[in-house]
Simulated scan of single mutants.
Amino acid sequence: MLDISVIIPVYNAAQFLEKSVNSAVHFDEVKEVILIEDKSTDNSLEICQKLASENPKIKLFQHPDKGNHGAGATRNLGIEKASGNFITFLDADDYYLPNRFDAEKNIFNDPKIEGVFGAIGVEYLTEKGKLEYQKKFKDAPLTTVNYPAEGEEVFRGLLSLTPKKFGTFFHLNALTIRKSALEKSKLRFNENLRVHQDSDFNIKLSYHCYLKSGIIDNAVAIRGIHDDNRITKIAQYSPQYNQRQYLYWKSLYDWVSENNLSLEYKKRIYLSFKSFDLSQKKGWAKYSNILWEGFKNPEILKTKYRFNYYR
């Protein structure tokens, strides 16, 4: 049987936390639910303490300084505290479905497989949150990929290098990874990224580890959509959006520069990084840099971010 450590970063999630924890703790495969409280300003800490006192499978930790360090650092602390052979993640305002580990039970019989990912659905908890989400992501019922894949195909797909459109990402809520794979690759979340650290982690993970798709046509977890979802607050190609994307792609560009990836992968990441780097420039400097970059790398005009240059 799998022995799984579920890591839940907790920040201002009092109204959702109990449902989230209860959705995970009852699985036979779940060895422990690790709550990492990140200096909430509501009563999340008290709820964490109550839950941990009621069930020995629920363990509560905070950062050594009791401070707020963001989701990346909080998940990293959870990884360090995890004692299970497998690690999963769950956001404190989301919850698992009963089929969460159905695919893993069989797929992990193959020792080559180091991680499994699936699909998540959405539940609209507020009308405002629903409108913001649908404006940005349309009304997609699932966050998933378009076809089954494993190994390098997953990495290529996430970088949009496959002949068929694979899909831009899978959600951490639907990822199960061997802890030994994280230790082997020395992979952790980029603590300098306050947003997109999950996408950054997943792309790096898909390169360093052998991943395989699990249940991708039905949800294995549900994402709660409400008024305070940070990812839906920022308009596409606004200055703040461009800055967040720049930091995300810079993290990947720094990583690819430090590792011996193929030229194809380096160029793909560089073009996206450079697109948002150019978006940070102003006035004549911006347009002269666009012209120069287009002359050196005409492919940049074919990236999905090409229209970002002129805003």
Rank of each mutant, 00 (worst) to 15 (best):
E293S: 15
K66S: 13
L278Y: 04
K250F: 07
K286H: 11
L35H: 05
I225R: 00
L271G: 04
G129C: 06
N308D: 05
F295P: 02
Y237S: 01
I290Q: 14
N202I: 10
E18S: 00
Y95A: 11
I7Q: 06
H226S: 11
E150N: 14
A73W: 00
C209I: 00
S44Q: 01
V33I: 05
H208A: 15
Y309M: 13
A92W: 04
N99H: 05
L247V: 06
L175G: 07
I107P: 06
E37M: 06
T168V: 13
K130V: 11
Q62G: 01
I8C: 02
F117H: 11
G167P: 05
S288N: 14
I269E: 13
L161Y: 11
L182N: 03
E29N: 10
K266Q: 14
F169L: 08
S44L: 01
N218Y: 04
S257F: 08
E183N: 11
Y95G: 08
T232H: 14
I34E: 07
I36M: 13
C209N: 09
S257N: 13
K136F: 04
Y207W: 07
P111M: 09
A92Q: 07
Y207C: 00
F61S: 03
V21R: 03
R156C: 04
I120A: 02
L45W: 04
T88R: 12
L172M: 12
K281Q: 14
L182K: 04
S20L: 02
T176A: 08
D94E: 03
E80T: 12
S180T: 15
G70M: 10
E127H: 09
P163G: 01
G115F: 04
K57Y: 06
V256R: 08
T162H: 00
H171Y: 09
S213I: 03
D94L: 01
